[in-house]
Amino acid sequence: MGLPNVTFKRALSWLAGAFTLLAFEGLGVALGRWLELPVPGAVLGMVLLLLALLVYGSVPTGLAAVSGLLLRSLALLFLPAAVGVYFLRGFATSDWLALLAATTVGTLLSFLLTALLLQRLLRRESPGEDSD
């Protein structure tokens, strides 16, 4: 008797979580259109949801569950766009080489600079207290 009730409640909280995500996406898209912002509507929705969660004080269970599921299957969601890489045409070899250099050297360079900057700033903030 008790079991279906628990399942029903869980299903309801998942539905509420899914509805929250869709509602905030819709809200973000509408806000972006209204203010004529060039920012993607879903990102506005994410900021609005973050603000709402800060005001609410915690993350509802259903919302956490649905969000976790979506974020764990991200690779499935952007798979169709990723497959397009194999069908790109019209770039010269020099373009591909530039791309390779920019993504490898560029990423390592900015990785290094991010780390050096943050380390220096953290040291200055709390001298004596090293890594924890």
Partner: peptide
Amino acid sequence: LYALLGPAVVALAVPLR
């Protein structure tokens, strides 16, 4: 799958929070 990308972006607010 494309349609689910929007809600996934909104979902990023949860780990951020």
